[in-house]
């Protein structure tokens, strides 16, 4: 896993790249509409450079301490913290891709069950009734409480 110093360097690099990308996009815009985005790009690029420099400076001051202690302290939790949320994002993407066909009712129950399985398999099976009940109640709330037209599979039958 990355040390705080490396994280800051990556963040600085991404910030500068992001500024460059937006600047390139703003290049195609007429002058008036481009002034403000260009100004923001300059500000972002400067801040990116400042972040990189400050990370480098603080690393120079605290090098012996960070090299020894931080990787060991962060490693066991960080891998899990990234893997499980990544699975959740995949589930979310699957849900969004399929929702126009399966509707929010089937889709949300499915996604809630999948998310529960990722978090805790045994608990997910034990609380299956809640996994069906919670999305149903929320859909009813949005449908009749908020008055939102949500595409539902059940509408195709009734």
């Amino acid at each position: 896993m990355l040390t705080p110093y490396q994280k800051d360097l990556v963040a600085a690099g991404v910030t500068i790249l992001c500024a460059g990308f937006v600047y390139a996009l703003a290049w195609q815009l007429p002058d008036g509409a481009a002034t403000y985005p260009r100004l923001l790009c300059f500000a972002m690029a400067i801040l990116g450079v400042l972040l990189g420099v400050s990370a480098w400076l603080s690393n120079r001051q605290t090098k012996p301490a960070t090299a020894k202690t931080i990787p060991q302290a962060e490693k066991p939790t960080s891998n899990w913290l990234l893997l499980v949320p990544a699975a959740l994002v995949l589930v979310a993407a699957m849900f969004i891709l399929t929702v126009p066909w399966v509707g929010f009712d089937i889709g949300l129950i499915g996604v809630m069950f999948a998310a529960a399985l990722i978090v805790d398999r045994t608990e997910a099976l034990r609380k299956l009734y809640l996994i069906i009940l919670v999305p149903t109640v929320l859909i009813l709330l949005f449908r009749f409480g908020v008055g939102l037209r949500i595409p539902l599979t059940i509408d195709r039958f009734f």
């Binding site: 998310a115 529960a116 978090v119 805790d120 608990e123 997910a124 609380k127 809640l130 919670v134």
Partner: peptide
Amino acid sequence: PVVVLASS
């Protein structure tokens, strides 16, 4: 349980 909260 967290499983119910997170999914909700």
